[in-house]
Design a binder for these strands. Structure first.
Length: 907
RNA sequence: GGGCGAUUGGCUCAGUUGGUUAGAGCGUCACAUUCACAUUGUGAAGAUCAGAGGUUCGAAUCCUCUAUCGCCCACCA
């Protein structure tokens, strides 16, 4: 007996920090380029600094850690590049909220002071998520921790911007963009999330000038009528041909509107006449361009109406809508209101209804980049797992529109763009109508017009003077770049691009990207574009898209719904290993995960089972094993059980490898669960228990545990390290131990069949025991009838074990035997088992039990005989299948006959 | 409007290239605590694989249609 006594329950709290610190101290997470080895690289999807770890992160990072640990053990130089994202709008919102509590706005503070506050906030809270990742066990190379606002990244961002600008792929232009009136910034199309709303369609009468007649237009946003400059009709619409030279009077404002004819208008929708508001609707804007109409912007950036709105000036857009409707109703111009379902964009950060707004913004001309990115995927240079995302990606990228990259916020990478006021003045471009600007927009200076290239200087640092006119009156553009403009460089900016060195050459392109479906467009596609553009290579080879984490009702987990399960609480209660294992084992490839608290019991119980199996072995381990363990499984004098478990171990290794290679993580986890619990613990340990003092048995157990711990380590890093260290082992840590290799020569399916005979006997005996209500304290005798010599020998060999696990006094073997009186019967495979019950037998119960079995068998027999009479089956099915069915049929018939005999002899 | 996913025992999900006995886990029921583990063990009950049609000797699996749920995309005034 060994003196190292373990608790009977695995206590994760005493283990996790200890080993994490140990790994850190040993510097195991650091990946150093080594040309003699192969690289395996993953860049982390950088979590927002505003974020705290949620279950989506837990899933995402567990998957990455599994891959990284697996590959690291397999001999790769495995680099997991960590970092965080500055998350422009999100972070700015958080800090602004805090300011509000102090009664401050960012404008009162000014840009510089405000940014100081954001950095303060970042220093204080920005690393929360990093420490949470550590608790999860993430083996990131923390020496390389990056942040998207670090200098390296700012430099990369400027570099990218300038290169694209010089290639003519970045431009500034007037366009209808998605405007969030709460964040007061432009958003990309991807940042505007469409939601279906039940709304109303308002039919409004517009008077025809000097006629006393009206036309009717339909709109969902009446407030935008204040910006109408025309009404539009399909040129083929016979109904309205007479309106061609008429003038329409805009109600309320009494402005005169032209009538234009445009194919865009669908005669079947509404009245077939559309109001045209080029400053607040994309289609209207395009129509306006086609017909040379001058747009009228009627709102301030904060969504209140400006002076073009006349008496509605100062009202919020929705309040304005109400007032206009009242007004129209009072003047009899509101013809009708009908219910109408439509979809409206919402800000992905604050959920405010997006206002389409004419605005001067910076755009990336994306089609040339997208073309290459589509090609790379079509040619198979990048593969999606599961495959179906390929089409989603391609569909998006084939229909891509230019990317609006400027944001009117302060937290982010400021555009590397400077304006020469002198040049702009001379070009007449500096035309800010200050009466239109609120305090906010004034400070942002955002309407500074720069359509003329002259006067625009794109540069990483502020130039001393204008290269054209020599003026020193230069100002930097106030806007910052979309957060994703730094994210899309992430796979190579983390390698200090454009100053690429050894590490880059070694580790790039990265191997796999693990992410959620939500950001395929935001991030995945754009990284592909950026890498192809700036590096000339794909950024990664595999993209694994995992599902969304939902609660048990299927709702997406979110703070606002209050259905969050906090991973930190789960780690406290169940342990990090339990969290990791549970979430992985229930996540089929690419399927959404439905979580509830109870599900973490699976992992915890599994950890405890492993703990106790190890405890049992450790309790019985001789010192000699510690001294002499050489990592081998002693095959001399090995039994069927030994060869069986060894075959199954190698089978498991092979299948786990295949599963991991195919990104089937749940499969791999379940193979381990099945092997460790139901093969190793349930059968193997039970079978070696009688011989536990045998040193060879101990070596074998240690070998098996050693292998299991290695295989399980990527999934459950903490408990495997804790146990591995307690067992005889070579090396300093399981996390750098070598990954087991499957020895296919040891895999033998015949062993399963042979060992299955033993298992069947035990199961049959247990079944009888249970169904016949035989108390566990009462021992039984098992009479085994088996005509075949070799099988009898086999059973003989294991009689001690069978006795042990089935609670039998004796296992007697017979070549032939007339059914003994007063005994219960069972068939186990092709052999028969009797358990004499000496007066204890309840005939009625036994009859019922046997009849039940008979029924099952005869159904099966009927099915098979029908099949075997089917001529077409016999002629068309492969010979092997037919032969197999014949054998089966014969076996079943025999079994059934014997069962019926047993049943009859009861009477 | 277009696309995708799901539908399998009470619940949550597996199910590789079609092969005839559809698997787990949780839950349920019964029994068990001298046993490494009650976070346990043993046994049992429980599913005509959403529906219809088709291909095939043979379909949970392949095809078509339908239904329900969910997601994504889209410039439906």
């Amino acid at each position: 007996m060994n003196d190292s006594q373990l608790d009977s329950v695995y206590k994760h709290k005493e283990v996790e920090d200890k080993w994490y610190n140990f790994w850190i101290d040993k510097n195991y997470f650091h990946a150093k380029a080594d040309l003699n080895k192969k690289p395996f690289t993953i860049v982390i999807p950088p979590p927002n600094i505003t974020g705290i770890l949620h279950m989506g992160h837990a899933l995402n990072n567990t998957i990455q850690d599994i891959l990284i640990r697996y590959k690291r053990m397999s001999g790769y130089i495995a680099l997991w590049m960590p970092g965080t994202d500055h998350a422009g709008i999100a972070t700015q919102n958080v800090v602004e909220k805090k300011l509000k509590e102090e009664g401050l706005t960012r404008f009162q503070l000014g840009r510089e002071k405000f940014l100081e506050r954001v950095w303060e906030w970042k220093d204080k809270y920005g690393s929360t998520i990093i420490s949470q990742l550590k608790r999860l066990g993430a083996s990131c190379d923390w020496q390389r921790l990056h942040f998207t606002m670090d200098e390296v990244h700012s430099n990369a961002v400027s570099e990218a911007f300038i290169r694209l600008y010089k290639k003519g792929l970045i431009y500034k232009g007037d366009y209808i963009i998605n405007w969030c009136p709460r964040c007061e910034t432009a958003l990309s199309d991807e940042e505007s999330q469409h939601k279906d709303l039940k709304g109303l369609l308002y039919y409004i009468k517009y008077p025809i000038k000097d006629s006393g007649e009206f036309i009717t237009v339909a709109t969902t946003r009446p407030e935008t009528m204040l910006g109408d400059v025309a009404v539009s009709i399909n040129p083929n619409d016979e109904r309205y041909k007479n309106l061609a030279d008429k003038t329409i009077i805009l109600p309320i404002l009494k402005r005169e509107l032209k009538v234009i004819f445009d194919d865009f208008v669908d005669p079947k929708f509404g009245t077939g006449i559309v109001k045209v508001t080029p400053a607040h609707d994309l289609n209207d804007f395009e129509m306006g361009n086609r017909h040379n109409l001058k747009p009228i912007l009627v709102m301030h950036p904060d969504g209140t109406m400006n002076h073009y709105a006349g008496k509605f000036e100062g009202l919020d857009r929705f309040k304005c809508r109400e007032e206009i409707l009242k007004d129209l109703e009072n003047t009899g111009l509101l013809e009708k209101t009908v219910e109408h379902n439509y979809s409206v964009g919402h800000c992905y950060r604050c959920n405010t209804v997006i206002e389409p707004r004419l605005s001067k913004q910076w755009f990336v001309r994306i089609k040339p980049l997208a073309k290459k990115a589509a090609e790379a995927v079509r040619k198979g240079k990048i593969k999606f797992y599961p495959k179906r995302w390929t089409n989603v990606y391609l569909n998006w990228i084939d229909n891509i529109r230019d990317w609006c990259i400027s944001r009117q916020i302060w937290w982010g990478h400021r555009l590397p763009v400077y304006y020469c006021r002198e040049c702009l003045k001379r070009a007449g471009e500096l035309t800010v109508d200050s009466s239109q600007l609120t305090e906010k927009t004034k400070s942002m200076n955002y309407e500074l017009s720069t359509m003329n290239e002259k006067g625009i200087i794109v540069s990483k640092t502020k130039p001393e003077k204008c290269p054209d006119c020599g003026s020193t009156d230069l100002v930097q553009d106030d806007d910052v770049l979309d957060t994703w403009f730094s994210s899309w460089l992430w796979p190579f900016s983390t390698f200090d691009w454009p100053n690429l060195e050894r590490d880059f050459t070694f580790f790039y392109p990265t191997t796999a990207l693990v992410t959620a479906q939500e950001i395929i467009f935001f991030w995945v596609a754009r990284m592909v574009m950026a890498s192809l553009e700036f590096i000339g290579e794909v950024p990664f080879k595999d993209v694994y898209i995992h599902g969304t984490v939902r609660d048990s009702t299927g709702a997406k987990m979110s703070k606002s719904l209050g259905n969050i399960i906090d991973p930190m609480e789960v780690i406290d209660e169940f342990g990090a290993d339990a969290l990791r294992f549970s979430i992985i084992s229930i996540t089929a490839q690419g399927q959404d995960v439905f979580l509830s608290r109870e599900k973490f019991g699976v992992g915890r119980n599994f950890a405890n089972k492993l703990w106790n199996a190890s405890r049992f072995i450790l309790m019985n381990l001789d010192r000699e094993v510690y001294v002499c363990y050489n990592g081998k499984f002693p095959l001399e004098n090995s039994s069927l059980a030994d060869r069986w478990i060894l075959s199954n171990l190698n089978c498991a290794i092979r299948d786990i490898d295949n599963s991991l290679k195919a990104y089937n993580f749940n499969n791999a986890a379940n193979i381990l669960y099945e092997f460790i619990w139901h093969k190793f613990c349930d059968w193997y340990i039970e079978f070696v228990k009688p011989n536990i003092t045998d040193i060879k048995v101990q070596f074998r157990l240690v070998y098996l545990i050693d292998n299991m711990l290695r295989l399980l380590h990527p999934f459950m890093p903490f408990i495997t390290e804790e146990l591995w260290q307690k067992f005889p082992h070579k090396g300093d840590s399981v996390m750098i131990a070598s990954w087991p290799k499957a020895d296919k020569s040891l895999i033998d399916k015949a062993l399963d069949e042979k060992f299955g005979i033993i298992m069947n006997i035990v199961s049959a005996a247990r079944n009888i025991r249970s169904e016949m209500d035989i108390a566990p304290s009462k021992n039984i005798n098992i009479l085994c009838v088996c005509p075949r010599e070799e099988k009898r020998k086999l059973i003989e060999e294991f009689s001690a074990q069978i006795k042990f696990v089935a609670g039998a006094d004796e296992v007697k073997l017979f070549k032939r035997l007339k059914k003994p009186k007063k005994s219960s019967y069972a068939c186990a495979g092709d052999l028969q088992i009797y358990v004499p019950l000496e007066g204890l037998i309840d005939f009625a119960q036994e009859e019922k039990r046997l009849k039940g079995q008979c029924e099952k068998l005869s159904k099966e027999k009927d099915n098979l005989s029908r099949l075997l009479k089917n001529k077409e089956f016999l002629s068309k099915a492969p010979k092997e299948v037919v032969a197999l069915q014949k054998v089966k049929s014969k076996e079943i018939a025999e079994k059934l006959a014997k069962l019926e005999d047993a049943l009859n002899s009861l009477k």
